[in-house]
Amino acid sequence: MTPATGSTALDGRRRGRDLDELAAGSGPIDVLVIGGGVTGAGTALDAASRGLRTVLVESRDLAFGTSRWSSKLVHGGLRYLASGRIGVARESAVERGILMTRTAPHLVRALPQLVPLLPSTGRGRATLVRAGFLAGDLLRLSAGTPARVLPRVRRVGPAETAELVPAVRRDGLTGALVAHDGQLIDDARLVVAIARTAAQHGAAVLTKVRADEVTGTSALLT
């Protein structure tokens, strides 16, 4: 099987050629990826970019399952800090920064998160929230994500709070704490973009193809 490097096309012509080469048994396959979600597409890209002969098969369509119905939040790992998983938290922040600046800046944007400061919030809780937001900002800094991409944590007054969230309760409102995280505009588009990049590196990306009788060395594709 000869990788068709250089082209990102996932059209009928390429599909037919890839299927013909597989049917003809034109050389061994190094990596068979089963599933065309974001993990499968990313695995295919990683393998193909390392020069491995890679085939990705998906019985339905790219991003058919969970990858199409995600929360669309590209979080920076703040939730992992609460359990002390500092390494995972920083890795999440780094990956978020890569998505926002290199991989898919057209698909990931900054999402403001606002916590209103009301009498019911209490000083202790407000301090805790601010500490959490500042910790998230430190993760952003450690990941090298610039503030022009992901704005710094800030406190805003009552007027700006009401402008940002018109439905906020006004009685006793003294302002709000605002932090930002990453928001994925379209998760399916991201999966397709990764799959096309894998194809550019020579991977065969085949939808409507099932993998049965899978072992460590073989599989039946139908």
Rank of each mutant, 00 (worst) to 15 (best):
M1E: 10
T2I: 13
A4M: 13
T5I: 14
T5S: 11
S7W: 05
L10G: 03
L10W: 06
R13N: 11
R15V: 09
D20C: 07
D20Y: 08
A23V: 13
A23R: 15
A24D: 14
G27S: 07
G27L: 07
P28V: 07
P28I: 05
I29K: 01
V31R: 04
L32W: 07
G35F: 05
G35Y: 01
G36N: 09
G37T: 05
G40E: 00
A41Y: 02
T43K: 04
A47M: 06
A47E: 02
A47Q: 03
R53D: 04
R53C: 10
T54I: 03
V55F: 06
V57D: 01
R60F: 12
R60T: 13
R60L: 09
F64E: 13
S67Y: 09
S67C: 06
R68N: 11
R68C: 01
S70G: 13
S71V: 04
K72I: 02
V74D: 00
G76D: 06
L81H: 12
A82F: 12
R90N: 08
R90S: 04
S92I: 03
S92W: 07
A93N: 02
L99C: 12
L99Y: 12
R102N: 10
T103K: 05
T103G: 06
A104W: 07
H106W: 14
L107N: 08
L107I: 10
L107E: 11
V108R: 00
A110Q: 05
Q113V: 14
G122P: 12
R123K: 14
A126W: 04
A126S: 15
T127Q: 15
L128I: 01
V129L: 13
R130D: 11
R130F: 01
R130M: 08
L134H: 12
L134W: 04
L134R: 13
A135Y: 01
G136E: 09
D137E: 14
D137K: 03
D137N: 11
L138T: 11
R140T: 04
R140E: 09
L141C: 07
S142P: 01
S142M: 14
S142F: 06
A143V: 06
A143Q: 05
G144S: 08
G144V: 09
G144C: 10
G144T: 09
A147K: 09
A147S: 13
V149E: 04
V153P: 00
R154V: 05
P158S: 09
A159V: 13
A159Q: 11
A159D: 15
A159N: 08
E160C: 05
E160S: 06
E160V: 06
E163L: 12
L164F: 11
V165K: 12
V165R: 13
A167C: 09
A167E: 15
D171H: 11
D171W: 00
G175E: 11
G175Q: 07
D181G: 10
D181L: 02
G182A: 05
G182F: 03
L184W: 00
D186Y: 07
D187V: 04
R189V: 02
L190C: 10
L190H: 07
V191D: 00
I194D: 01
I194C: 05
A198T: 10
Q200V: 01
A204Y: 03
V205A: 05
V205N: 04
V205W: 03
K208R: 15
V209E: 00
A211M: 10
A211S: 12
D212E: 14
V214A: 11
V214P: 09
V214Y: 11
G216M: 03
L220R: 15
